[in-house]
Design a protein around this nucleic acid. Sequence first.
DNA 1: ATCTCAAAAGACATTCTTGTCTTTTATAGA
DNA 2: TCTATAAAAGACAAGAATGTCTTTTGAGAT
Lengths: 147, 147
Amino acid sequence: MIFSKSFGYALRGVLYVAIMTEEKQKIQLDEIAEKLTVPRYFLGKIMNKLVKEGILASEKGHKGGFSINDNTMQTSLLKLIKITGDNEMFDSCVLRLRKCNSKNPCPLHHEIETLRNQWHKLLAETTVNELMKKDQPDFIKSIATIA
Amino acid sequence: MIFSKSFGYALRGVLYVAIMTEEKQKIQLDEIAEKLTVPRYFLGKIMNKLVKEGILASEKGHKGGFSINDNTMQTSLLKLIKITGDNEMFDSCVLRLRKCNSKNPCPLHHEIETLRNQWHKLLAETTVNELMKKDQPDFIKSIATIA
DNA sequence: ATCTCAAAAGACATTCTTGTCTTTTATAGA
DNA sequence: TCTATAAAAGACAAGAATGTCTTTTGAGAT
């Protein structure tokens, strides 16, 4: 698979909070995990990472939960990818030949570089806000479906 | 990483055999693993898969080893990807929303579909033969370098 | 202060990929 | 037929990603 499960959970988690935040201020992990049909504790750790990275806010204790903050809506997919660890996707040679760079390119270097840049651009430009603006009819449903 | 280690090993293994086959008929696993700086037994299993899939020929025993066959040079990267198990890269939703298809697309479905199709095309059209025809000066070196 | 709630943190289990070692099988040559 | 050789096959180990459970921490409510 091109991206990790963690990335998918992170994205769907953020989106769920962003969508639900119109109805309530705080969204609990229990609800998120249940609605997204995602392993609760595992999601918890990912959400925690997002909080530490400043993508989301959280509060402990009574009436606690997750909520959006000033950064949430501007967060790019690329940022989520980096946070969840799928780095190096844009670093290393796709053919896995190590000695490959613009000076000493592998046979597919240039073709792949073009494609990779397009990916990079798309992922860097697509933010949580962008995704929500597209406003698909069943968007919330598609987020809530197991991946 | 976008592709698995196994894929990288498979590709480099095939390329090494294809290149060396001009000098000798049979290439031994020991040599391949050493030159590519790749775990010997692990590579052995991957080479074995390639043989079973008809991508390479092999012979046991004295004067045995790996060699190319009628299919080797026409083998596409896509084929290698499938053999080494990185399937579903072109199947499932990149955002990992399951209920995502052309009828019920996720917000990025169309943009991603375009990119994915380009990848698919490139990987399907690029064969072992194509790679070797490009004839980079240090191609054999770049194959032989650890990934 | 104490209780309850919910995230955070830490220990542990499972699964998948990758890597290693040993034994078996097949082939050529003496 | 026997020996050497090299791939194939099988058992096992290490590592990373994913998943589960328990304990701790922090905040509001009583």
